[in-house]
Amino acid sequence: MDETGKELVLALYDYQEKSPREVTMKKGDILTLLNSTNKDWWKVEVKITVNGKTYERQGAVPAAYVKKL
């Protein structure tokens, strides 16, 4: 869990989004888990830093590609 009490997951593999509802992640990324009720796809929040600014993006990733921490 992070400092706000939200559950975290670890990306076990790289994943490139294939639709606007998904998010890209790299192996080793730590993501915030938002919903894991679907056994195949979990909704997560990814933090992306671009030019020193951090953005948050929500989307789905394959459940088999992440592990709860």
Rank of each mutant, 00 (worst) to 15 (best):
E45A: 14
L10M: 14
E3Q: 14
E22M: 04
L33G: 00
T37L: 09
T49I: 11
E17H: 08
V46I: 14
W42Y: 07
M1N: 13
S36G: 10
W41D: 00
E56T: 15
V44I: 05
K47T: 14
Y15F: 06
L8Y: 15
K27Y: 05
V23D: 02
Y13G: 04
G59I: 07
N38T: 06
V61T: 02
E17L: 07
L33V: 06
E17G: 15
G5I: 12
L31G: 03
A63H: 03
T49V: 13
Q58V: 14
N38A: 08
V50Y: 09
I48R: 08
T49N: 10
V61P: 00
L69R: 02
K39V: 10
L34N: 01
N51C: 11
K47R: 12
M25E: 02
V50T: 09
K67Y: 09
V50H: 09
T32W: 10
V46Y: 09
V66Q: 01
K43C: 15
T24Q: 02
V66S: 00
K39R: 11
V61D: 02
W41T: 04
V66N: 01
R57F: 08
E45L: 13
A63P: 05
R21M: 13
N35G: 07
R21I: 11
K39N: 11
D14C: 08
V23W: 04
A11Y: 03
D29P: 00
K53I: 14
E17F: 09
N35C: 14
T54M: 10
Y13M: 12
N35R: 06
K47G: 04
T49E: 11
N38F: 06
K43M: 15
K67H: 09
L10S: 03
K43H: 15
I48C: 12
T4I: 12
W42H: 01
T37H: 10
I30F: 04
D40N: 12
K43A: 11
E22W: 04
E7D: 09
D14T: 05
T54C: 12
G28P: 02
K6T: 11
K68I: 12
R57Y: 07
R57W: 06
G5Q: 13
Q58K: 08
K18I: 05
L34C: 07
Y13N: 07
M1D: 12
K47L: 13
D40L: 12
L8P: 02
T24F: 02
T24D: 02
Y65S: 09
L8A: 06
P20V: 08
L12K: 04
K53S: 10
K27P: 02
T4L: 12
S36R: 09
E7H: 10
K53R: 12
A11T: 02
K43V: 15
K6S: 10
T4S: 11
P62I: 05
K26Q: 09
K47V: 12
S19A: 07
Y13P: 01
Y55N: 06
D14N: 07
K53W: 10
T49W: 08
R21Q: 14
Q58I: 12
L69A: 05
K39L: 10
Q16Y: 14
D40H: 14
T32P: 13
V9W: 05
A11G: 03
K53M: 13
V50S: 08
I48F: 11
V44S: 00
T54H: 08
N51H: 10
K39T: 10
E45S: 15
V50P: 00
G28M: 02
K18P: 02
E7F: 10
T32V: 15
G5K: 14
E7R: 11
K39G: 10
T54L: 09
R21A: 14
Y65N: 05
K68Y: 08
N51F: 08
G52R: 02
V9L: 09
W42L: 05
K67T: 13
I30C: 08
G52E: 07
N35E: 15
T37E: 14
T32E: 06
L12F: 02
P62L: 05
Q58N: 07
V23T: 04
I48V: 13
Y65R: 04
Y13Q: 13
G28T: 01
K6W: 09
V66Y: 03
K47D: 03
L10Y: 11
T24K: 02
S19D: 10
K27Q: 10
E56C: 15
E45Y: 07
A64L: 09
E17W: 06
E56F: 15
K27E: 05
Y65Q: 05
S36W: 07
K47Q: 11
A64M: 10
K6M: 11
L10G: 01
A60Q: 15
G5C: 15
G52P: 00
V46T: 11
Y65K: 05
M25Y: 02
L31W: 03
D29K: 00
D29W: 11
E3I: 14
E56P: 13
A63W: 03
E56W: 15
N38G: 10
N51R: 08
L12T: 01
Y15A: 00
I48D: 04
L31K: 00
E22F: 05
V23Q: 03
W41V: 03
E17Q: 13
E45N: 07
A60I: 15
T37A: 12
G52M: 04
L8W: 13
L8H: 09
N51Y: 06
G5M: 11
W41L: 03
V44P: 00
K67D: 06
V9I: 07
L8S: 07
D2N: 14
D2H: 14
T4D: 13
L10T: 06
M1T: 13
L8V: 08
S36C: 14
Y65W: 05
Y15M: 02
G52D: 07
S36H: 07
M1H: 14
Y15K: 00
Y13I: 09
L69G: 02
T37Y: 10
A64I: 10
T49S: 10
R57P: 01
K68E: 05
P62M: 05
A63K: 04
L33T: 00
Y15L: 01
G28F: 03
T49K: 11
A63V: 05
N35T: 06
D29S: 05
L69M: 09
I30N: 00
V46W: 06
K68S: 06
T49G: 03
R21W: 15
V46N: 03
R57C: 09
K67E: 12
E45R: 10
D29A: 05
M1I: 12
T54S: 11
V44M: 00
W42K: 00
W42S: 01
D29M: 12
K68C: 09
T37P: 04
T4E: 12
A11V: 10
L34T: 04
V44G: 00
T49M: 11
R57H: 07
V50Q: 09
A11I: 03
Q58R: 11
T32K: 13
K68T: 06
T4M: 13
N51V: 05
K43L: 15
K53C: 14
S36V: 06
K53T: 11
T4Q: 13
L34M: 06
Q58Y: 07
W42G: 00
L31P: 00
G52S: 05
V61H: 01
K43F: 15
G59C: 06
Y65F: 12
K39Q: 10
K43T: 15
T4V: 14
M25I: 15
L33H: 00
R21H: 14
E56Y: 15
K53Q: 13
E45I: 13
V9E: 00
E3Y: 13
E3T: 14
L12V: 06
V23K: 01
M25T: 02
V50M: 10
L12Y: 03
L34Q: 01
K43S: 11
E45G: 11
L34K: 05
